[in-house]
């Protein structure tokens, strides 16, 4: 790891100003930044430690929704009683991510900035070609070991999977990223790779995530995050689904449905086609399974990740049926 200067920010403004300097990066939990610095992927000149800022770690939940400070730890949000009861998918996405230690370190804001686990991205010494690291250098993953790579939202420049679980739940429930005064929908915060996979987030130098807002909804209250992976724990998703449902008064007809996929796409993947196909329908297994196939419309595999195209709709269907059951 190259050496860097360490600055401890004592205000949000100071943090923003410092972060706007060339070569400066914000340091929160460190679970991505320090890891990638050791890999030689990030080489900050200055790290700006924001973990000592006050007032950015609160979680407030009311009838309008939840407001989660950017420095709230994943673990404290996962265990928050109001988040558990009103946004179960958010809590479940959080506690199934990483490990207890990492969740104690990682912040909500930092979690949104988590980088891909693509092994080619993470190993610059052996794989110099990576459009995400060095625009125009090529993609080492295409044609390589692709078992974990994305099947949705890929481009010729990049097939790296967005690895997070939380953001999958956030896009399902229309959460808003607060960058100080500027607000942006989570779905718009994450960018498709297209020809510029180095640009992952709609955030400018000097901007800093300050909070995440999640609007209250009946679908969020009746929601789940289902994560499927090889190992029972401490692993990224092979496929994950955040799902929430609201029924009409009859308790059977779907009034509102939210579906987002994780672990299979280059960004948290809202599956609106599934939602639209099922709204107004009865929640029945065959209907749900058929509609869930719409989740992977347009999917493209790269060999070893072909199973994700089979798996993802099944995860979506199971999740929908699960939230449907738990009336």
């Amino acid at each position: 790891m190259r050496d860097f200067s360490y600055l401890r920010a004592n205000s949000i403004d100071a943090a923003r100003q410092a972060a706007a300097l060339p070569g400066a990066m914000l340091l929160a939990g460190g679970t991505t930044l320090i890891d990638l610095a050791k890999c030689g992927v990030t080489e900050p000149d200055t790290v700006v430690d924001i973990t000592h800022l006050k007032g950015l770690d609160t979680v407030t939940v009311d009838d309008q929704g939840a407001m989660i400070g950017a420095l709230a730890r994943m673990s404290s949000v996962a265990d928050d009683a109001d988040i558990k009861s009103r946004f179960p998918a958010v809590s479940e996405a959080l506690w199934q991510a990483a490990s207890a230690q990492l969740r104690n370190m990682a912040t909500i804001g930092g979690n949104l900035m988590q980088r891909t686990r693509c092994p080619y991205f993470r190993d610059p010494a052996n794989f110099p070609a990576c459009n995400k690291r060095s625009p125009g250098s090529g993609c080492s993953a295409i044609g390589g070991v692709t078992r974990g790579h994305a099947v949705l939202g890929t481009s010729e420049a990049c097939i790296a999977t967005y690895p997070g679980d939380l953001a999958t739940a956030l896009v399902a429930f229309d959460a808003i990223v607060h960058l100080g005064d500027r607000q942006i929908a989570t779905d718009d915060f994450f960018l498709l790779p297209d020809a510029t996979p180095d640009r992952e987030h709609a955030i400018a130098p000097g901007e800093m995530i300050t909070a995440i807002g999640i609007p209250a909804s009946a679908a969020a209250r009746r929601s789940t995050y289902l994560k499927v992976r090889d190992r029972q724990s401490y692993e990224f998703a092979a496929a994950g689904a955040a799902v929430g449902v609201e029924f009409e008064a009859d308790g059977r007809t779907i009034k509102d449905l939210r579906v987002a996929l994780g672990g299979v796409a280059t960004k948290p993947w809202r599956a609106r086609a599934v939602e639209e196909a099922l709204k107004g329908k009865l929640l029945e297994p065959d209907t749900v399974r058929r509609a869930s196939l719409l989740a992977i419309e347009g999917a493209v595999d790269h060999g070893a990740n072909q199973y994700k195209i089979e798996l993802a709709p099944r995860v979506v269907a199971r999740a929908i049926l699960k939230v449907g059951e738990t009336a």
Partner: peptide, 18 residues
């Protein structure tokens, strides 16, 4: 794994300065 302010965290991804 160590405790920082009573919370279990990973010392390998924590800067000493932090």
């Amino acid at each position: 794994t160590v405790h920082v302010d009573g919370q279990r965290v990973l010392a390998c991804l924590t800067l000493a300065a932090q």
